[in-house]
Amino acid sequence: MVKVLPFEEPIIQLKTKIEELKEYTANADVDMSVEIVNLEARLEKLEQEVYENMEPWDRVQVARHPSRPTTRDYIQLLCTDFIELHGDRLYGDDAAIIGGIALFEGKPITIIGHQRGLDTKENIKRNFGMPHPEGYRKALRLMKQAEKFNRPIICMIDTKGAYPGKAAEERGQSEAIARNLVEMAGLKVPVISVVIGEGGSGGALALGVANHIHMLENSTYSVISPEGAASILWKDAALAKEAAEAMKITAPDLKKMGIIDTVITEVHGGAHKNIEAQAMYMKETLLTSLKELSELTPDELVENRYSKFKNIGEFNE
């Protein structure tokens, strides 16, 4: 049973009703087909209303949906010949980030992304998609490898944040993230980042210093989770809904602020409703990006990234 989100409830109720009527028509002599057609029309309208007027908090719910497609799903649907590469060559292999080489449209790319688990067991292995320093160092190693072999890099961002733990601190969580930011700035190949779920703070940004940044319509990208913000600002985590609105964390908001390049349309109700279709939407955006970026020389790519981030920030002078 797929988890139903609060804002979708009217739709689900109507759908159940239609199913009931259909069953009734099939089993009894009474013909309800006119009513069914009417209800279906209403359903369509309702779906449009609900899904096209999603509140920020609704989007947060969709972004966190347990069945929301993960990096691995997109790799499987978008790429062929994927070979996963492990390890940072320094300390360990962090399962919260996966990465490797694959063919995208028949051409080699390096693809890296946060990976959470599908169930509790896998989530423990993957630390709920919250990386330790070795995860970021693996990502950087794979990016450097991509640079050597002149492959574009695609990063999928989907994390609540870098893991806040003792071991992570001991091994230099801050350094690992900081190093990625600096090194990504200098990569001489195209870098494209896509926020596919939650983009949680520095843990997300460490895969996000890209030439193009895209976001799925119902994904979020922020400096802190709405709960965290609410407890810091108003000392009450229960005000997360308000914080989600105030902080402008949804894809449409970030697009308006000029931080991201594209909002990738999601299938109605969220990517989990039709993963294949969603992957196709993403493919189009990625191809457009790759075409555009492949026109640039290595130095222009670096310059492009520099000016992109140089221009973010608002102030008076």
Binding site: L85, H86, G87
Partner: peptide, 8 residues
């Protein structure tokens, strides 16, 4: 592999 030294 667990200690980050191998790709596969």
């Amino acid at each position: 592999l667990n200690h980050g030294q191998l790709d596969a």
